[in-house]
Write a protein that binds this DNA or RNA. Sequence first.
DNA 1: CCCTGTGGCAAACAGTTGTTTACTGAATTC
DNA 2: GAATTCAGTAAACAACTGTTTGCCACAGGG
Lengths: 210, 210
Amino acid sequence: MNSSTRATLGVRQAQKLKTRQALLDAALKLLEEQSLSSLGLREVTRVVGVAPAAFYRHFRDMAELGVALVEESLGSLHVMIRAVLAEQQEAEEVIDRSVEAVAEHVRRHPAHVRFVARERHGGVRAVREAIAAELARFGDEVADALAAQEVSRGWSAEDVRMLAGLYVDHLVMTASAFLEASADEQRVIADTARRQLRLISLGRRHWRAA
Amino acid sequence: MNSSTRATLGVRQAQKLKTRQALLDAALKLLEEQSLSSLGLREVTRVVGVAPAAFYRHFRDMAELGVALVEESLGSLHVMIRAVLAEQQEAEEVIDRSVEAVAEHVRRHPAHVRFVARERHGGVRAVREAIAAELARFGDEVADALAAQEVSRGWSAEDVRMLAGLYVDHLVMTASAFLEASADEQRVIADTARRQLRLISLGRRHWRAA
DNA sequence: CCCTGTGGCAAACAGTTGTTTACTGAATTC
DNA sequence: GAATTCAGTAAACAACTGTTTGCCACAGGG
């Protein structure tokens, strides 16, 4: 009668998913203060409270666990981005809304954000590639949203994609800047981010019109 | 009579510097495929061909070696940036010149660039802070150069610093994008980077004028 | 020329790591 | 209700880690 698991899932399978999630959670916690390539399998199982060998029932190695963490981490970000993109508002409002959304996302999922920022260029190839692929999908999604706006009339697909890339990069930079900042510094960062977006948006409106 | 070391340096001191440099070089090479927090002291000394204990004659631990690598890595970048900033040219030219300089820098010092990109958000606090401090100095330097240009007339110091931050971030993003790219992809990246800089420069010219 | 400072060495230390093995006991299937 | 599946266990493995110790060879100053 566990309400958090579907009734159709057997007790067996549900338990397995539970420890799998426990492994992911423990790893994410440990990764707040070290990087994936130095995180040991025993370290993780010790925190969860299972035998080291149990790890292999869920992941081939730490790299595979890392890829699973990428999906978990960027999944929530994906939801957030889609929500912001869906709102149809004035440019100024959409900027304020975006920065606020990023700030809140970092506040709610700091470990996820830190993990992505850290492993984006980290020492584990498979994880790097998973993050790159997911961020590329973000870029495409943003590009689609931009193309649908009337400001982009007459823009080539490449130019739209270029602008989308700029936005995604800026998002990632801003999010990781928030991470290590105190409350005071966070306000400064948010303010700077808004002005930067405003400047970009200005450049956008004058593109090919100058 | 070693021409690469000052004549005033005794044989003693010169030898010490030589193995110290060998340790740094070996570490940098090993760091192309892993991150600092997983790099072992024995691993480094083994490559150099000295006893593990010899490491302590030069660094307290790997974190200290990492900080030394930061200075080495960002030192060369610093020279490059200063050179570009010194040139007084038309906006369009300075953009082409900047992107070309970044591309060449990555071509000449890939391991250094990779190291900085990887450890900027990596698992070793001291190294993160050293990189952040150095990048902040870059930002100040760029800000000074921007402020001296007539386009910035009437700009507040904060706005100038905001724009400088945007440029520095863009530089780092572009450099790390170059890293894992093939020759073909590099051309695409360079082209995208140029267009992004052009858009930013456009926004800059219309700042507070719109 | 001898004395001293010191960069590097060999060896030993207690811990820790990833992986394999044979196993147990409970949920599932028939 | 018996047979089967399989998540998790305990123990052992060789290989490796960072750090300390006492020692040596030798450059450099007196």
